[in-house]
Computed example of a mutant assay.
Amino acid sequence: MASGAAWRFAARQMPLRLSVGAFFLNSGLSKRGADQATAEGLQEFAATTYPFLGKLGAQQFARLLSAGEIAIAAALLVPVVPAAIAGAAVTAFSAGTLGLYFGTPGMRQEGSLRPTEQGTVLAKDVWMLGIGISLIIDGMSEHR
Rank of each mutant, 00 (worst) to 15 (best):
S30W: 06
L77E: 00
K124L: 00
R144K: 09
L64H: 15
L53D: 02
T116H: 11
L25A: 04
L56T: 06
A95T: 08
A10H: 05
Q109A: 08
D35V: 03
A83F: 15
P82N: 00
T91C: 10
Y101A: 03
A39S: 11
F61D: 09
Q13I: 00
G87V: 05
G111P: 14
G68H: 05
Y50H: 00
T97I: 15
E117D: 08
I70E: 11
G96R: 02
G111N: 10
A83H: 05
G87E: 02
G130D: 07
K124M: 02
L76W: 00
A62T: 04
A2S: 10
Q60Y: 11
M140N: 06
L56C: 10
Q118G: 03
E117S: 08
E44F: 00
F61P: 07
M140Y: 08
A22G: 07
S66F: 00
L98Q: 09
G54D: 02
P115N: 06
G139W: 07
A86N: 15
A88H: 14
A71N: 02
I131N: 04
A22R: 12
Y101E: 06
G99E: 14
A67K: 00
V90T: 13
I136N: 05
A71L: 08
R12W: 15
A37L: 13
A89M: 10
A74P: 00
I131D: 05
W7L: 10
V126K: 02
L135T: 07
G99S: 11
E40H: 02
L29Q: 13
S27T: 13
G21W: 12
G4A: 02
Q43E: 02
A6W: 06
Q60P: 06
L16E: 05
G33Y: 11
A47S: 08
A84R: 15
G33F: 11
E44H: 06
A11H: 08
I136C: 08
L53I: 07
M140H: 06
Q109W: 06
L16W: 09
A74N: 04
G119M: 12
V78S: 04
I131C: 15
V78H: 09
G28P: 12
Q59T: 08
